[in-house]
């Protein structure tokens, strides 16, 4: 077979390069990463809590939270321990050292441990703000929305998940009810993404203003999202908390559109003209 002969003779470097292999540095422990060192607490019990989150170890995180709560306030357990672990995980993800499943397992560990702390606290920790998320009417593809919701929750936001195939009316009602700092809509198809301008228009007609209406998904592109008011094209799911934080800080959708790469803190090809 020609393939076997070619495999012996060909210089693959002239055909393709696996850049992911080429750029891969030596294996280091997560806690030795310089960006992790910056956020990782040095003192106990916070370091153990953060490390359990970094390793996505739910059992250990829950146990560490229970032990810590004997001497430490629930809010400190959350803010100085668990949340710092999640900050480290975000840093590792942003630089490509961690991958999506790592983040999900860390988020699961953080959620479980936080529930223990909140039980002691007697109430839910105060959230940074509320975000409402939905998948456009007629569209059953929800993995993008699920990621957005996960990233928001892991970053301290209350994420109201309306699900998939959500009628416009339900979105409007939810916005009225929760008064979110951000609304997110996702769609895979060109013909379902038309829900976004319809929702934006209906909100405007009813005099309801949302600081940001983040829209993204398979066929959704920036020029489409920027064709209606409030719309900000979301490129990656993990950008969602940063956009919500920008809105919380008082930035308008027009400013967020303009400063998108700066707000998310990285090069974004889709916004290359606004770097």
């Amino acid at each position: 077979m020609a393939l076997l002969d070619w495999a012996k003779k060909a210089d693959f470097d002239m055909m393709f390069k696996r850049y992911n292999v080429i750029i891969e540095g030596p294996a280091i422990k997560p806690e030795d990463d310089p960006d992790v060192k910056k956020v990782l607490p040095k003192e106990e019990p916070f370091r153990t809590l953060a490390m359990a989150v970094i390793f996505g170890d739910t059992e250990k995180a829950v146990q560490a939270a229970k032990t810590a709560l004997e001497r430490t306030s629930p809010l400190d357990v959350i803010e100085k321990g668990l949340a710092k672990g999640m900050d480290a995980v975000s840093a590792l993800y942003a630089k490509g050292a961690y991958f999506l499943p790592d983040i999900m397992l860390s988020a699961d560990a953080m959620t479980a441990a936080m529930a223990v702390a909140e039980q002691k606290l007697g109430r839910a920790r105060e959230k940074k703000g509320t975000v409402v998320s939905f998948v456009a009417e007629g569209d059953p593809h929800d993995i993008g929305k699920n990621l957005v919701v996960m990233f928001l929750k892991a970053n301290g936001f209350e994420a109201v998940d309306l699900g998939r195939d959500v009628p416009d009316k339900e979105v409007i009602e939810a916005v009225k009810k929760y008064k979110p700092v951000m609304l997110t809509g996702t769609a895979l198809m060109t013909t379902t993404m038309t829900a976004f301008p319809r929702v934006a228009k209906a909100l405007q007609e009813q005099g309801i203003s949302v600081p940001v209406f983040g829209c993204g998904g398979g066929a959704v592109k920036r020029d489409f999202v920027e064709s209606y008011d409030m719309g900000v094209y979301g490129v990656k799911a993990f950008h969602a908390p940063k956009l919500a934080e920008a809105a919380l800080a008082g930035k308008s959708w027009k400013e967020i559109r303009k400063e998108y790469p700066k707000i998310v803190g990285e090069f974004v090809a889709e916004y290359a003209d606004r770097m």
């Binding site: 999506l100 999900m104 929800d142 993995i143 699920n146």
Partner: peptide, 11 residues
């Protein structure tokens, strides 16, 4: 798909 998506997201 619901189970698959869970598997993808959590490895």
């Amino acid at each position: 798909k619901s189970v698959l998506d869970y598997g993808v997201m959590r490895g």
